[in-house]
């Protein structure tokens, strides 16, 4: 079942690759846009749920029951559920869309790495996952993995004369765009005990490091996907009016 899911993604990716004159970099970008558009409602729902939970943290009634039932966890849970019901908030509203998207992200990732088959066994598997009815497999294989200055099947780095090591520009851009995206989606919180704000802070530093590490060590085709996905995420937040641009400024310079 999972292999079938990945195979559908791989075929779609290769179909786009063929359509755009066998440019795998452009194919990854277009396919990522397609996936982002398809999952737009899920992302919107996630943003909405996250905002509702954020607002709740600053709600006076909510803070009051946190204080009142701090020592009675069972009663606290009951009261929290009551508030959720009254305000029409689904506590899993922000998590569920993310969970649904997770297999999509993994499948996209798998299809990119599968399409870049780097060994004979990988190529054999790729040949069997392509639908020969609508793709000219013999002509398509192997994929042309060069895009701009990169080999999409290899980790990227730019070598500057005089430097003994390469500069991983793509990994830096991945980390930077992930950081910006995380900061933009972080609403200002006035509550010092706000757990979701604390999680957001952790995420703003953990995710860029994690994705930057992936971009540093894995094929650069994946980094192209991360960057495209991050930029589209930022565009979506901005279009929905959710982007908190002031978060990008140093703390002292933020408008009060």
């Amino acid at each position: 079942m999972w292999d079938l899911f990945v195979s559908i993604f791989t075929n779609a990716l290769l179909w786009i690759y063929n359509l755009v004159g066998q440019n795998f970099g452009v194919a990854i970008i277009l396919f990522t846009i397609l996936i982002k558009v398809a999952t737009w409602p899920l992302n919107a729902q996630q943003l909405k749920g996250a905002k509702a939970m954020q607002d709740l943290q600053n709600d006076k009634d909510w803070q009051a029951i946190q204080k009142k039932y701090a020592k009675d966890k069972e009663k606290l849970a009951q009261e929290q559920m009551r508030v959720y019901r009254e305000k029409g908030i689904n506590p899993f509203g922000s998590c569920l869309p993310t969970l649904i998207q997770f297999p999509i992200i993994i499948a996209l990732y798998r299809s990119i790495t599968q399409a870049l088959a780097s060994t004979p066994l990988d190529l054999l598997k790729l040949s069997r996952s392509i639908n020969a009815d609508f793709l000219d497999v013999a002509n398509l294989i192997p994929l042309k993995s060069n895009f701009l200055w990169m080999n999409l099947g290899q980790p990227e780095s730019v070598h500057i004369p005089g430097l003994a090591f390469g500069i991983p520009t793509l990994a830096i851009v991945v980390a930077a765009t992930t950081y910006i995206q995380s900061k933009l989606t972080m609403p200002a919180s006035t509550n010092p005990n706000d757990q979701s704000a604390a999680m957001g802070q952790s995420m703003a530093y953990t995710m860029p490091l994690m994705l930057g590490w992936f971009a540093l060590t894995f094929p650069s085709g994946l980094a192209v996907y991360f960057i495209t996905s991050n930029l589209l995420g930022i565009v979506q937040y901005a279009m929905q009016g959710k982007a908190n641009w002031s978060n990008l400024l140093p703390k002292g310079m933020r408008p009060s």
């Binding site: 780097s118 066994l121 604390a198 999680m199 995420m203 953990t206 992936f214």
Partner: peptide, 30 residues
């Protein structure tokens, strides 16, 4: 606790993705 859970999930995702990607980097073959 939620913070720890979140960080654990991020790390687990990293491990899962690394496991998937290992094959892509090292390659596997006959």
């Amino acid at each position: 606790r939620k913070k720890l859970l979140f960080i654990s999930m991020v790390l687990l995702s990293a491990v899962l993705l690394s496991a998937c990607a290992g094959g892509a980097i090292r390659g596997s073959s006959w």
